[in-house]
Design a protein around this nucleic acid. Structure first.
Lengths: 220, 220
DNA sequence: GTCTATAGAACGATAGAC
DNA sequence: GTCTATCGTTCTATAGAC
């Protein structure tokens, strides 16, 4: 069911089994994509020239072109990496078995991990404004992902696993917003990932208060 | 104490007592600032020309200049409006009296209201990247505001009003991130503001779960 | 006549195309 | 390196309300 709508571009060349090495430093495709994503985030996609990208990678523009097809292909590769990470979560066993709440909670925790692990790529994804066709494609995929979360929130709410009384659609937006807001401040090193995961999970599902909620115990 | 750091530009001319009318449509300064903020958000500040702005306002570029000092002044006015709204919250009685948690909770709820009421201006503020001097000034002010929130979270945590065990600095970031993420999806009309306020408050402080937390009852 | 919102024209600067 | 388009900005003029 998942990943059906997204058009999959031709498999990226330049992939290489782990452990295989080159004599030269061997700029591999994925590290150049990461550099590109970082510069795109700093300067903005439009404002970034191929000169900027090759300079950031430490090679000349012509060498750079030997490794990548072009600017838009780089953008697309970076966005695919973010989206593959996110959609990959939905296929994990723990995301497909158990109660809606259990699955949702697993997905949120894994989403934080993917977001941190693919920080430049996900940041790029979350800052898209939909100017080019590639951007609109990625935005569509992202909406699919958000819809999967929203659907799960709705299920969990209907099953009485979430606090009753308010709008599950809004809760889903807030939940995604909370997780996605990490890209605005989180930088690797300062806060351990597992601690971050615990904090986000706790805030989202249990809240910040010391005591339990003023529970009226009703179910939907 | 608040609002001290911000340099205040010369008072905007063109202000006029309420009720006074002009024969011509009379574009007032604040509505032009709002239009500008909206277009800045759509196109990005750099990519927006004065031609774009005047066209969006429905007058020619030269007419537009009769009402505003220039592009950067418009940006600054929009950012000031956002910042004044936010800092104004910190001076409200309910934000200065009561326990840290009470004050924090009031601020968060009011922050949602300001964010919705000044949506284009706050959106602009939250998307700044710090390219120009004005942007850096606004980012500094915004950091001051976030620091005030963080300080309050720390106080509430120290007072045992928040769940113990994790990092108050991270909680403060998450709380701000949750609230600020509203600008990415909220549009007036669909969800009533008071409902939105209730949802954000509930998620932040009580969490999404139906039952209370697995409270171990310990205090910091 | 005075005031002012509006508009047309043009200037200096600059960024990108070629 | 040159040329051109566009940008932010300013100047001058007109037209309508009081």
């Amino acid at each position: 069911m998942r990943g059906v709508t997204g058009t999959r571009p031709p498999a990226p060349e330049g992939e290489r089994p782990a452990g295989t090495r080159r004599a030269r430093p061997a700029y591999d495709h994925s590290s150049l994509v990461e550099v590109a994503a970082r510069v795109f985030n700093e300067r903005g996609y439009d404002a970034t020239s191929m000169e900027d990208l090759s300079a950031a990678a430490g090679i000349t523009k012509s060498s750079f072109y030997h490794h990548v097809r072009g600017k838009e292909a780089l953008l697309r590769a970076a966005l695919e990496r973010a989206l593959d990470g996110l959609f990959g979560i939905l296929d994990e066993p723990a995301a497909t078995a158990g109660t809606p709440l259990t699955r949702l909670r697993h997905i949120v925790r894994r989403q934080v991990e993917v977001l941190v692990g693919e920080l430049p790529h996900v940041t790029l994804l979350l800052r898209l404004r939909g100017n080019t066709e590639t951007e609109r494609w990625a935005l569509g995929r992202r909406r699919e992902f958000d819809a999967a979360i929203a659907s799960l929130v709705r299920e969990a709410s209907a099953a009485g696993e979430l606090r009753a009384g308010l709008d599950p659609a809004v809760d889903a937006r807030l939940l995604s917003g909370l997780v996605n807001s990490l890209v605005e401040w989180y930088r690797p090193g300062r806060v351990p990932v597992d601690e971050l995961v615990a904090e986000v999970d706790r805030m989202a599902f249990e809240g910040l208060l010391a005591q339990g909620p003023a529970g009226d115990g009703r179910r939907a």
